[in-house]
Design a protein around this nucleic acid. Sequence first.
DNA 1: TTATATATCTTCTTAAAACTAGAAACTAAT
DNA 2: ATTAGTTTCTAGTTTTAAGAAGATATATAA
Lengths: 108, 108
Amino acid sequence: MKGHIGEFEELVLLTIATLGEQAYGVAVLEDIQNRTNRKTSIGALHSTITRLDEKGFITSYLGEPTNERGGRRKRFFQLTASAKQALSDMKSLRDELWTLSDLKLTSR
Amino acid sequence: MKGHIGEFEELVLLTIATLGEQAYGVAVLEDIQNRTNRKTSIGALHSTITRLDEKGFITSYLGEPTNERGGRRKRFFQLTASAKQALSDMKSLRDELWTLSDLKLTSR
DNA sequence: TTATATATCTTCTTAAAACTAGAAACTAAT
DNA sequence: ATTAGTTTCTAGTTTTAAGAAGATATATAA
């Protein structure tokens, strides 16, 4: 078994999942920036998305032009079953370890 | 603030947390191998532990000789407050994303 | 005191992940 | 047409993770 899902890759996948029908590049980027304090570049996101696609974790399709000011047609992303399974596995493992440990959620 | 916690680094930290007083190299390795299907080398673990130490996420101390068969004195690891905070932050973020998404845990 | 078990530590290499910068593609208003 | 706003996409670099192989340290047993 090779090729694990990296920390940023997982964040991108989860964000795509939460955005549902609205999961395209810039929206994913902004969502990540809003939820975390990290400033992430669109290029960094794009290369990660390419990798996720090559690994079979996402599919994509082009949207139709809108009435917005401008811009290329949006490319929307969807998780594959394989991605959902992988995310589920990672969550199960971490939840179990979290339960076994004496760690506590700290509010911050 | 730079340098995120990688996927394997997080697994190592969580494993150390669950092992508590028994968190030394070989025990951590075996625990990871038992809970996952990945075959990880002690060398890979060691370099990760060095990195976590440099990042200020773990401390360590040498154990006392025991009546066991033999061997070098064990080096035990502990999480720092900074590590606990980082793990908590990551869990909070993922839990939130998981809730917002329509993902479900699949048994496997 | 030699053999062996247990475990850490070192070095080196490779692969994967994360990131940067900026070009290109496209849309629509002016 | 020109311009400006949005977005995707490409090429390349840097950083981090992982693994292999084995040297080194410590303890116990015979």
